[in-house]
Design a protein around this nucleic acid. Structure first.
Lengths: 123, 123
DNA sequence: AAAGTATTGATACTAGTTTCTCGTTAGCTT
DNA sequence: AAGCTAACGAGAAACTAGTATCAATACTTT
């Protein structure tokens, strides 16, 4: 049976407070504010468990190792800040996708990443 | 000075014949049809050299290690076939990007990937 | 054709990320 | 509160992608 540990609570809390996708390292840092002895192995163990139970899902960005965000947010995309390297969610979707899909290809889904500077770094 | 070797010719030829982005492994396979002794180290060496001289450029897709395509094609995006795992180029661009960029964020560039089945695999 | 050296191929190595191992800790149940 | 054992922490190990090493090969020039 699954236990409700300090570590797991800290990890869940970190996701909720952050509100944007977190890499394992970012997650470790954030959750250590709560449980400072937290180890990286525990982070990975819980990421796997939380993903399996559907509470988080992986966010893969070009040339980056995966980040994770709380699941069930509906269709959205991401903004990657080139200064602070953080990833933000963006609402909305450009649409128009079928028109650029080549003849005979079956479009199933799409991913879409904006690059630039976030509000904080742009200032 | 740079030499014109069988290996380098085979690699260039593979890019031109393929007409779509190639991973180092794909490139190795293709170029081995021409030079069967070709080693992976040589592939990486030439990828680096060709990228440096601007003849190819890297194509980064979510969760994938980089592929490379012949440079200088103008703005375009990519279609990743989930069956054969090949990547194709697609013309056009949805536009409309500023409207979904959050307040205060500075948009610099974007990347955009379609997923589904290519013509061959859809048949 | 010979000499000089850039390039090759095989393999060892590095770097980064994720997983495994195992003794210890701490939730949960009774 | 005692016992059971899931979960933890630290470090070793595995995996992957890419780079470095070095003797052998093969372009180029003379």
């Amino acid at each position: 049976m699954q236990r409700d540990t300090r570590q797991r609570r800290a990890i869940r809390a970190a996701f909720k407070e952050a509100g944007h996708p977190l890499s394992p390292k970012e997650l470790l840092e954030l959750a250590r504010r709560e449980v400072e002895s937290l180890g990286i192995a525990t982070v990975y163990r819980n990421l796997r468990a939380l993903e399996k139970e559907g509470w988080i899902e992986a966010v893969e960005l070009p040339g980056e190792s995966p980040r994770y965000e709380v699941a069930g947010k509906g269709h959205h995309h991401h903004f990657h800040c080139q200064d602070c390297d953080r990833v933000y969610e963006v609402e909305g979707c450009p649409g128009n996708l079928k028109s650029i899909t080549p003849e005979g290809f079956e479009l199933e889904s799409h991913e879409f990443v904006l690059y630039g500077r976030c509000e904080t770094c742009a200032a």
